[in-house]
Design a protein around this nucleic acid. Structure first.
Length: 462
RNA sequence: GGCCCGUUGGUCAAGCGGUUAAGACGUAGGCCUCUCACGCCUGAAACACGAGUUCGAUUCUCGUACGGGUCACCA
């Protein structure tokens, strides 16, 4: 074994550049915790003008999932987390898929045996184990947790190369991270206790260990991590529910990291500028979907008309009178945007437009609006009368009609508005007011619904 | 159980020896209003506990309790 073999890859890497990596195994979905790890690794690279690398860890053949690698690209791309080097685009230190690197691990393992840092296990069939000193202690420094010292006696001599010839996760990681010139390893805190073994490996090879940045877990509650098994949503699930990727990224960035100030809303590139390793928390954070909804609503509110239309198109098109006219579309969009925190709730919000809900007349009673069954019955008759004469069916005209009506009969405006809205929507809470709903419904349907209300009320002897 | 790590309001969190202990979500009340929402204002709500160190501890040290991680030919 000659020395050039071991240094070939390193020659390619410019000295002094920060290189981070995200190294998922292709399981078919992206955990929120994983996404955050990827994000932090990306941010650290970008903050320092460095390189962010995607490496696929597929050494466990049994867990291979079809299409999983594609999904990783798709997920990262939708978040704007674009790897500078990856299996797809290549880079300075290929290949980027561990199963394509198996020869490398074997050679390094044998070299490590020569160096004395590992040995062939005589008992077990054909495996190579790490050799750990019996005495002393190993110290490493983590940028989040500080200096941690572990007695060597507490460290196990783990398998490095399995009997199938493939490396174990820990070994493959050390080799790849070194060969790919990774300067900062960002990973979950569950690796904290195996890090001394990593450092021993680096030492045995005579390599400089990277900086470690261990991140506390993202929890579902006080004692359990987020998990697909418990039904916790993955990134894909959240996106499916109508969360905007940018909102998810922003929220997740703040779960376990604080920018220090009072600002909470950050775009990806603003995060790249503001991110600091010192701001990473040591203790676990509980994922709060209520707060995520808040972030989502903030992001939705900030969308331009065009952006909102594009992002909500699918849900918007399910609304009955949405495509009736461009004017209708705009009214619905403007009314929807400020009051929704989840895209998937849009169709439901406007369902009453398509079909008048079966409602009870008690909805006509509203103290604050001074609306009673009797006043409603009267107002509806006035409305039908007046609206049948009305030809300009727009918001301004209808507002004028209803205002005049209330003035003519000497009642509060809401005495007319309230029953109008209830009759036309069939529900107490609606996006938009009476006149807006009337516009969306169109003259014929609005009057039809008012007539139904009139009948309902008279059927009850009002 | 051994070893390692953590602990500020319900949640995310600022704080890095002296503060009326920020801010956000949520929550309660109010204002605005053609319902709801948006927006605005106001309120309630926290340093796990016990010893030290110190003139002074949320901040430093130790212990206790509680929680998490890890002890695989899984990543």
């Amino acid at each position: 074994m000659n020395n050039t073999f071991f240094t070939d890859n390193e020659k390619n890497i410019p000295r002094g550049t920060v290189r981070t990596r995200f190294a998922p195994s292709p399981t078919g979905y992206m955990h929120v915790g994983n996404l955050r790890t990827a994000l932090y690794a990306y941010l650290i690279a970008k903050k320092n003008g460095g390189t962010f690398i995607l490496r696929i860890e597929d050494t466990d053949k049994a867990r291979q999932v079809e299409g999983a690698e594609e999904l990783i690209y798709k997920t990262l791309a939708s978040c704007g987390i674009i790897p500078d080097e990856s299996p797809k685009v290549g880079g300075l230190t290929p290949p980027y898929i561990q199963s394509e690197r198996r020869g490398i691990y074997k050679q390094y393992a044998e070299y490590l045996v020569e160096l004395g840092g590992a040995y062939r296990d005589a008992e077990a069939p054909d495996v190579i184990r790490q050799r750990i000193p019996q005495d002393g202690a190993t110290t490493f420094s983590d940028l989040v947790y500080g200096t941690i010292t572990t007695p060597n006696a507490d460290l196990d001599e783990n398998v490095l190369i399995k009997s199938d010839g493939l490396p174990t996760y820990n070994f493959a990681n050390v080799i790849d991270d070194h060969l790919m010139g990774i300067t900062h390893i960002v990973r979950g805190s569950e690796y904290l206790s195996s890090t001394p073994k990593y450092n021993l490996l680096y030492e045995a090879f005579g390599w400089t260990p990277p900086e470690y940045i261990h991140c506390p877990p993202v929890m579902r509650d006080k004692q359990n991590k987020m998990s697909k098994r418990h039904g916790d949503p993955s990134f894909e699930d959240l996106a499916e529910q109508g969360f905007l990727p940018a909102a998810i990224v922003n929220y997740v960035a703040l779960l376990g990291w604080s920018p220090g100030g009072e600002r909470e809303l950050f775009t990806l590139s603003e995060l790249s500028d503001s991110f600091t390793i010192e701001g990473i928390s040591k203790s676990p954070s509980i994922f709060d979907i209520i707060k995520l909804r808040y972030f989502n609503s903030e992001y939705i509110k900030r969308l331009t008309d065009e952006e909102f239309r594009a992002v909500a198109a699918e849900d918007l098109n399910k609304i009955a009178s949405y495509s009736a006219s461009p004017e209708n579309a705009l009214v619905i969009e403007r009314l929807t945007q400020p009051r929704i925190d989840l895209l998937s709730g849009i169709a439901e919000l406007w369902a009453f437009l398509g079909e008048l809900p079966d409602y009870g007349t008690e909805l006509f009673v509203h103290a604050k609006s001074k609306s009673t069954l009797e006043s409603a019955a009267a107002a509806i008759v006035w409305l039908i009368d007046a609206l049948e004469q009305e030809d300009s069916w727009d918001n301004e005209s209808l507002t004028a009609v209803m205002t005049e009506l209330s003035e003519a009969h000497g009642v509060k405006k809401s005495v007319v508005m309230w029953p109008a809205r209830i009759a036309m929507a069939g529900q107490a809470v609606t996006p938009g007011g009476a006149t807006e709903i009337a516009v969306l419904l169109g003259k014929a349907e609005a009057i039809r619904r008012l007539t139904i209300a009139a009948k309902k009320l008279s059927a009850e002897g009002v």
